[in-house]
Design a protein around this nucleic acid. Structure first.
Lengths: 219, 219
DNA sequence: ATTCCAGCCTACCAAGCGGTAGGTAAGTGC
DNA sequence: GCACTTACCTACCGCTTGGTAGGCTGGAAT
């Protein structure tokens, strides 16, 4: 465990395991990833892996906890964006998108947990997102009272849809990329000859979120 | 295999297998469902199941093909809704939502395929949805030319987001239900004392889709 | 009457799974 | 020098998995 190990990189075996497990769980799912596969990816034997994590389930917990930790680190920045000036909403939205774009495995992991363990997922959401969601909701309600936001908006349902959209858009980006690319088209949209399909997808997402919320979305 | 078999219901063993497999694949995923479990659910032995479907992979194909068949049966009605009068867009949207609400397993199944086999999923999407998506896109473009629809809308990205939203909203409904329910609240929203959270969620979804598209969404 | 075959069964297999037992080499503290 | 810990290893276990081999049964066709 010397600072410069006997191999090449070495960044702490435990951290390496977490990284590989995150990646593999995201791509193949928890049930679809064997401890053997993870151990191979790290370059150790299976029992060595079980030395660091007592069971596969514990490894999954650790992976999700790490993900949520990273999220909690970002929340303050999101809040800061959300309370500085006028474009609070959009800034916060971009911040959240940035979190998932930084590692799309996060989005895939969340979608898989939603499908595989809905009850546990719900608990985790409430624990780590409840506070943040409530804040955005109160912001929306204030906007409604001030006449800036459509009265017809259901704040809670709206927030959930927008969050779900962001996660889905990132998790589905390999597919969206291909679907949007072949329509590179007749150079009619803008000036950029070719734009990243994910950028295009997320731009439209933000536009939809804005128009769904504000009475005067242009500005 | 008489019309009224020796047991109780009997609706064709093959069809029963497909039904149970669809349900179980949706809940636990393809890899998370063993042939044994499916056989138990149907009430036969595993080799009998493999008599009807040569392999597990073939069973999955059959399940997805059946799902897509059902979808193809609905498409004409969606089109009919989409070409009758003014509220084309919303009618088509409700029709699609109805398809998934009729059996939420459909939505879960699609999300799982998206995550587990993105390439095959993309091919299937192109084959079965390509035509329909292109039609909606051309409708949007016409609306833009007529000044009814925001010029800023990216038709393709918009359609993909809305479809993804619908599927996600249905697939995540068990979670959404609980999250939205506890806010039964202070009777301030409407007149209905208690509304189905899924209805509420989908109403907001449709509202978002409408405001994201039309320049004058109210009417 | 016999043949055939669909539809189901029991019995079995190799491979892979998560996890355990127990050992070893390299440090670390006293 | 010795006890102890950390981090890894080989070897193995019980169990489940998808899939196969082959046998039984009852109804339809010849």
């Amino acid at each position: 465990m010397a600072t410069s190990g006997d191999n090449v990189d070495e960044g702490g075996t435990r951290e390496q395991i977490l990284a590989e497990a995150t990646r593999l769980f995201a791509v193949h799912g928890y049930g679809g990833t064997s401890l053997q596969t993870i151990a191979d990816a790290v370059g150790i034997r299976k029992p060595s892996l079980l030395y660091h994590f007592k069971s596969k389930a514990e490894l999954r917990e650790a992976v999700l906890d790490t993900l949520m930790e990273r999220w909690q680190e970002v929340v303050p920045q999101v809040m800061r964006s959300a309370t500085s000036g006028e474009r609070r909403f959009e800034a916060a939205l971009e911040e959240v998108l940035g979190f998932f774009r930084a590692d799309p495995a996060r989005a895939q992991l969340l979608m898989r947990e939603l499908l595989d363990r809905p009850k546990e997922f719900e608990a985790r959401i409430k624990r780590h997102l409840g506070h943040w969601i409530a804040l955005v909701m109160s912001y929306i309600r204030r906007g409604q009272e001030e006449g800036l936001i459509h009265a017809g908006v259901d704040p809670h349902a709206y927030v959930l849809h927008v969050v779900a959209m962001m996660v889905t858009a990132i998790a589905a980006s390999p597919l969206t990329n291909n679907l949007l690319r072949r329509h590179a088209d007749e150079q009619d949209t803008d000036r950029t000859g070719q734009e990243d399909p994910l950028d295009r997808s997320l731009r439209e997402l933000v536009r939809m979120a804005r128009h769904g919320l504000f009475i005067h979305p242009e500005r």
